[in-house]
């Protein structure tokens, strides 16, 4: 074993200098009981920076649209908002990739809000609540039902989020009752789909839903 004369200690491993006082060591080296692990610089920090920057750019470009609210910038607005919305969708899909059902809830809410905002910027024709949101919700319900089957997600993992997706499908019915829609058909279709799904979930998975709720909401 190597020895540091200054500290009067034996040193394990192939050290040239004492790890405590940096004085030169003398004697035969023995193998270190601890491996020398190369420095690692985490990709997590890079991802975090990219995510936050993206979020800031997206938010800024949505807010910037307010400046052109009165002006008729037509196609420019569509391209601009389309690109931004796409970026947002990709960002959230990547971030929430580990739980597809959870990711779907996030996407439904985010895209719904973007559509409403877009409609508002364009002078409010009501197309977002009449067509976009019901279509979005209905598509999400069908998508979740297919995905959890295909990916064999455990019931406990997805049931709350698929339940939430189904509940979001009831929102168009609320818009219909409040008279915010110009054409009732999409809302009715989406609402009916949602109610069917709700009945199925309650009948088949009621116990699981209650178990999950008790677990996640215990105080």
């Amino acid at each position: 074993m190597r020895r540091c004369a200054q500290c009067a200690v034996d040193v394990e491993g192939h050290w040239m200098r004492c790890p405590l006082c940096a004085a030169p060591l003398a004697g035969e080296a023995v193998p270190s009981p601890l491996p020398a692990v190369p420095l690692n610089f985490s990709r997590r920090r890079v991802w975090k920076a990219l995510f936050l920057t993206s979020l800031a750019v997206i938010l800024a470009s949505f807010l910037a649209q307010l400046l052109f609210r009165a002006a008729d910038i037509g196609l420019v607005r569509s391209v601009w908002l389309g690109l931004t919305a796409m970026w947002l969708v990709v960002l959230m899909a990547v971030r929430k990739r580990r739980n597809v059902a959870k990711g779907t809830v996030y996407l439904v809410v985010l895209i719904g809000l973007v559509c409403v905002y877009w409609d508002y910027l364009g002078g409010w024709d009501g197309w977002s609540l009449t067509y976009a949101v019901p279509a979005l919700c209905a598509a999400a319900i069908i998508a979740v039902l297919i995905m959890v089957r295909v990916m064999r997600t455990e019931v406990g993992e997805h049931i709350l989020y698929s339940g939430l997706t189904v509940l979001l499908g009831l929102a168009p019915l609320v818009f219909l009752v409040l008279g915010w829609v110009t054409n009732p058909v999409p809302s009715v279709v989406c609402g009916a789909l949602s109610i069917c799904a709700l009945v199925v979930v309650q009948a088949a998975r009621g116990a699981e839903v209650r178990h999950e709720l008790a677990k996640r909401l215990h105080v």
């Binding site: 074993m1 540091c4 500290c7 009067a8 200690v9 034996d10 040193v11 394990e12 491993g13 050290w15 004492c18 790890p19 405590l20 270190s32 009981p33 601890l34 491996p35 020398a36 692990v37």
Partner: peptide
Amino acid sequence: DVTVAAAR
């Protein structure tokens, strides 16, 4: 008698 081992 003290023996030292350190990770780099």
